[in-house]
């Protein structure tokens, strides 16, 4: 314990844990802080498991619902619809799950604890990075559950286990990329409910105006044009190709390219807006 007395010897000031004072945070510290913040995110999930409803119950219900609702009408039978719908539901569920990143970030930033984070000598970016990191766990849960549901309903993907895992990873990567959009809304919006509002406005056209649930063949030409250009469609096709036939196609690369573009645009925007507030 350092004793500070104004009259005696000048105290030697050190940072926490006796480290010398430094005015910058190193890369390794930044990574450590981000992982600690991600750990915090996971602890919060464990404390409030109801947060996971959108990535646990929803994939089960949606898979059941859409499969039996559309199966006969769209593909002639449930069994024929499964290879189409499971990748579609998978993409839709996981991407929907990424909206939560934004709302939770907003809620977090409004709370008192955020003031403490700001007063700590940690990397400014850590709370944001931690949130984005922790949410990949949510995507993994949603992915596993949807794929398992598909398997239970009788889906036997031709690509085999390895390619199904690869397809799952592809979805998680793309959802993570999209979560930057919602994180951006989370940083700039005034309230958590407005984040949710804006996010769903972006999300619904993206996920439903795609080939996730129906083949695009019957769509009016303008809609077809949108649905086929939609990066979500490429993602869905990429997942179908991987899981059902074990093929790595152009769709996969287009989906990854789309994800890359989103990150390239929204990561700097989000970080800049975030740092201004942090």
């Amino acid at each position: 314990m350092t004793t500070l007395s104004p009259t005696s010897t000048t105290p030697r000031l050190t940072g926490p844990a006796g480290r010398p004072l430094k005015n910058h945070v190193s890369v390794s510290q930044t990574i450590r802080h981000s992982f600690t913040m991600a750990y915090r995110g996971l602890l919060k999930i464990r404390r409030t498991p109801e947060q996971l409803i959108d990535v646990t119950i929803q994939p089960i219900i949606f898979t059941l619902m859409f499969t039996y609702l559309f199966g006969g009408a769209i593909a002639g039978s449930v069994a024929d619809y499964l290879p189409l719908i499971i990748p579609g539901i998978l993409v839709q569920t996981v991407i929907t799950g990424s909206v939560v990143t934004g709302t939770q970030l907003r809620e977090d930033m409004d709370k008192g604890v955020f003031d403490r984070f700001k007063s700590l000598p940690i990397a400014r970016i850590a709370p944001l990075a931690g949130a984005l990191l922790a949410d990949t766990v949510r995507y993994a849960i949603a992915t596993t559950l949807t794929l398992t549901m598909g398997f239970i309903l009788g889906w036997r993907p031709g690509g085999g286990f390895g390619f199904v895992v690869l397809a799952g990873l592809l979805v998680i990567v793309c959802a993570w990329a999209l979560s930057w959009i919602f994180a951006f809304f989370g940083v700039v919006a005034r309230s958590a409910s407005s984040v949710q509002g804006i996010s769903f406005l972006v999300l619904f056209p993206l996920t439903f105006l795609s080939n996730a649930f129906v083949p695009t063949g019957t769509l009016p030409s303008w809609l077809k044009w949108f649905a086929e250009g939609n990066p979500v469609s490429h993602l869905v096709s990429g997942v179908r190709d991987l899981a059902n036939t074990g093929a790595i196609t152009g769709n996969l690369w287009l989906a990854l390219l789309g994800a890359g573009v989103v990150v390239a645009i929204f990561a700097p925007l989000t970080v800049r807006a975030y740092m201004r507030k942090a």
């Binding site: 000031l13 005015n23 919060k44 709370k111 003031d115 403490r116 000598p121």
Partner: peptide, 17 residues
């Protein structure tokens, strides 16, 4: 960042999780 290493802050509204 140096200042943050020298201070502890207890804000008016509990800054805990």
């Amino acid at each position: 960042q140096v200042v943050r290493q020298l201070i502890g802050v207890t804000a008016q509204f509990a800054s805990v999780d």
